[in-house]
Design a protein around this nucleic acid. Structure first.
Lengths: 130, 130
DNA sequence: CTATCTGCAAAGTCTTTGCACTTTT
DNA sequence: AAAAGTGCAAAGACTTTGCAGATAG
């Protein structure tokens, strides 16, 4: 088993990701870190994010424009209404829906069903400045 | 206004897409067409698909691995439970859900909200052969 | 000390674009 | 003929990989 080491880079990525509760791309996160004076490679950011996801500490989701979006994992299972401009995410639960989905999956014999129920729109703020 | 012309390539793409009610990538569709003896360029497939989407004759959706998936449009608005192996899609409606989503969007001041509610799993057939 | 990590540059995907040539109308 | 479409090759964007040098444990 290959075990993980703690490096300042990984810590930096995790902290940067934790700062705002918003979905960001690896590239954006990298930029942010550079601007903050943290000199690390884009490669490292990708690797750190992948690790975080595997460790269950971050969520991934495929954005509309074919780009991976990352966010600190909030353990609870809910979905997001994401602004496609600024990335701000509103979380929401779907009580009845969750079970409806499971029922559907079972009914059709599907296994390992991951439901990506994400809504993309333009938030109020961005709608105004447009 | 730039109008469309009817070419055998576009027709071929549309027919290939229509053959199975499944989500396929542009690349897959291109392969399929080549194997069927239809010699056309990948570029053309992309352009034809884009046109079909604009014309409302096809649906697009971003697959899990960041890859555009296309399918003939079934006009009605429903969602899909997609096998990530074979691409087979089961459609389902979400009666109450649609309005719930709209309500959410309005409540949070979001505009132009597109909801991609797609479930990815392994279908029965593929689950067996695995 | 040594397994793991970093970061550069190179390679790999999917998709789009530029441009000369062909085809529809 | 003229406008629109085709296809190649090249470019773009995002992500992954190979590998030598750096580093955590």
């Amino acid at each position: 088993m290959t075990q993980r080491r703690t490096t300042w880079q990984k810590t930096a990525v995790f902290e940067a990701l934790s700062q705002d509760q918003v979905f960001v791309s690896a590239q954006e996160l990298h930029q942010k870190l550079l601007l903050a004076g943290q000199k690390l490679g884009l490669t490292t950011v990708y690797r750190a994010l992948t690790d975080l996801v595997e460790a269950g500490q971050a969520d991934v989701l495929a954005g509309e424009d074919n780009e991976m979006l990352y966010r600190v994992c909030s353990n609870e299972h809910h979905h997001h209404l994401i602004c496609r401009k600024c990335g701000t995410a509103v979380e929401f639960d779907l009580d009845g829906f969750e079970s409806e989905v499971s029922a559907l999956a079972i009914k059709h014999g599907y296994k390992d069903v991951a439901h990506s129920i994400e809504l993309f729109g333009i938030c109020e703020k961005c709608g105004m400045s447009a």
